[in-house]
Structure formats: structure tokens, C-alpha cells
Design a protein around this nucleic acid. Structure first.
Lengths: 151, 151
DNA sequence: ATCCTTATTGCGACTAGTTGCAACAACAGA
DNA sequence: TCTGTTGTTGCAACTAGTCGCAATAAGGAT
């Protein structure tokens, strides 16, 4: 079953309506292989359905997030980026200095997840983390003199 | 040494100028015991220095963050909240359903930090995390029927 | 095929935060 | 104390995202 079809079904099954706007949005998210910003989605939907409003995009994205169908991630680019939620989950290491983004596997968070459940009874949503820090290269470069501004 | 003084010194030592605007902002952050939003800081500075502009607030907050003096955290309230960076660090568990926020100790992240260093050479900035999920109470309440909207 | 309920839309106004630029003012050096 | 450099400010315009509301239209029921 295609992503698109799966998204449509989940939406209907959860009792939500299937509007043409939502179908377009789902189609675009479903066929995308990468992260998409709300703006990118808006532009692509507009290409085929010029009248759509940005509110519909944001509201649909919000709905899909609440249903656990997409993951919003703040990669530090000033906009939130969305992608289909799919196992295995992955997270992102983002270098403050050079901006390099490294994908890491969800397994990294297994022990944290266990601790949160055991000690706090908290069911964490550990499926779309952005972890900021310094990559190996930038540590070497910036450690000696880290006083001056980075940006 | 007071927080205020320590912040002033760090700023000067890093080669930045000490403007009246910055002094006010630092004083307010230094004497606050809780998270502060940019808006709250702006209002409090305005009380004594009416002419200050929001850009100065945001730019100073940004600078302090880059210098590692304050931590910005998105607690899901629609604004970023800032607080003095102080050991021991703490993180926040935020319940998607009821909004309850639980403080947890930084020790929770020790093994993750180690793994990131060992496996990726990545020096993560694990000092101000917001982890979303479901608290124990809300898990019990929402697990049986989790189809309908939460918001 | 039609009707009814109510979820969803477009719209416009709003909030949070960012940015480029000209004017200003710290502060190092003389 | 004065001066010059350049970091910092206020401003205004901008971007991302949210919200209330009236109009619209999905989709279940008849």
C-alpha cells in the first residue's frame, strides 16, 4: 500500500473528513523522500490547486502530527520540517558551528526511553529528536578559542 | 558573586560591549528564579528603560545563548523560554495531553551523551531538553481510545 | 437524490521572532 | 580627555505560524 493511501485511510479511520486540500497535501507528503517545510508543501499544492490557503496546510500538518503520521522537526533552519513517520525512527545531530546534520538510529534512545518509563512513568515520544552540539571536526577547530561569536 | 555580575564579566571577557540595554537585560535574567519569555523580559526592561526595542532583547538573548550563559527552551507554550544556565542541568518532560511539566535531572542523559561521543565524536549540548510524551495519568486515560483529537 | 450536522476552509488580523540598514555609542588607544 | 573603529541599537519591513469567524462542503442518514 502506498504512503498516500495509508495516510488517507488513517485519516478517515480516525473520523476526519477527506477534503481535496487534504488529499493534495497527503499526496505531496507521501511521495516526498525528504523533509518538507510548510512553505514547500504550500507551493507544491498551489501548482495544482492555486486557491489553497496556508492555514489549511498548517492545520493539516498539525492534525497529521497529532495522529502520529508525520514528524515535525526543528533542524535549526528557521522553519519546521515535516516527514512521514516511519520505522525505524531516526534522529538528527546538528552541528552548531558548521550546520552539518547526521542521522542517527532510534536505538540510541532505547535506554533513555526505558529510564523515563521506569522512573517517571512517562511515555516519551522519542521519534523525532534534533540534538544540537559540535561535530568532531568543529570541536577540534573551535576548542582552543571559543570566546568569539560563532554565527 | 551574583549572577548579574558573573554575566556581565563573561560578556566583557568574550569581547562584547556593555550597553545599558544589555545591563538591564542581564539584571532581569540574573534576578529571576524561573524561565522568562522574551516578551516578559521586554516588559520588565521597559519599566525602567522605556525606549528599548525588541530586537535588542532577541539579539542579547541570542548572544547569551551562544556564550552558553542562558538556555532557551521550547516548552510548547508558543514562545521560547530562557533561564540562566546552571549546573546541575535539568530537562523537562512535557505531557502532550495535559501539559504537565516535570523536571528531570541531567544524569538521565549521561549514557546518551557518552554514546554520542564514542560512536559519532559528537559533543552534544544536552543541557536544555524538552521531551514531549504522555505522563502516567494521561496514558491511563487516553490509551483505550486515542483516535480523536486531543487539542 | 436531498438534507442536516458539524468539521473544515479561506480570510484577515494577529503574535513571535529575524534581518538589513543607517545612526549611535562603547571603549581602546593616543 | 578626545578620537576612531566597529560593535550595537532602533526601526521598519519581513517570515513563520496561529486564531476567530463566517461561509462552505463532507459524508451519514433518509
Amino acid at each position: 500500500m502506498s504512503h498516500h493511501q495509508r495516510l488517507l485511510d488513517s485519516l478517515r479511520q480516525a473520523g476526519h473528513r477527506l477534503t481535496p486540500q487534504r488529499e493534495m497535501i497527503l499526496a505531496i507528503i507521501g511521495e516526498s523522500q525528504t523533509h518538507l517545510t510548510a512553505k514547500a508543501i504550500l507551493q507544491r499544492v498551489r501548482a495544482r490547486y492555486p486557491h489553497i490557503n496556508k492555514s489549511a496546510i498548517y492545520r493539516t500538518l498539525d492534525l497529521l502530527t497529532r495522529l502520529g503520521l508525520v514528524n515535525p522537526t526543528d533542524l535549526g533552519h528557521g522553519q519546521i520540517e515535516y516527514e512521514i513517520r516511519q520505522r525505524p525512527f531516526h534522529h538528527h545531530l546538528i552541528c552548531h558551528n558548521c550546520g552539518k546534520i547526521t542521522r542517527v538510529d532510534e536505538s540510541l534512545f532505547a535506554s533513555l526511553d526505558r529510564k523515563l518509563r521506569d522512573e517517571y512513568g512517562f511515555a516519551a515520544d522519542l521519534c523525532h529528536f534534533a540534538i544540537f552540539g559540535l561535530c568532531a571536526k568543529c570541536q577540534a577547530r573551535t576548542t582552543p578559542t571559543r570566546t568569539r561569536r560563532t554565527k
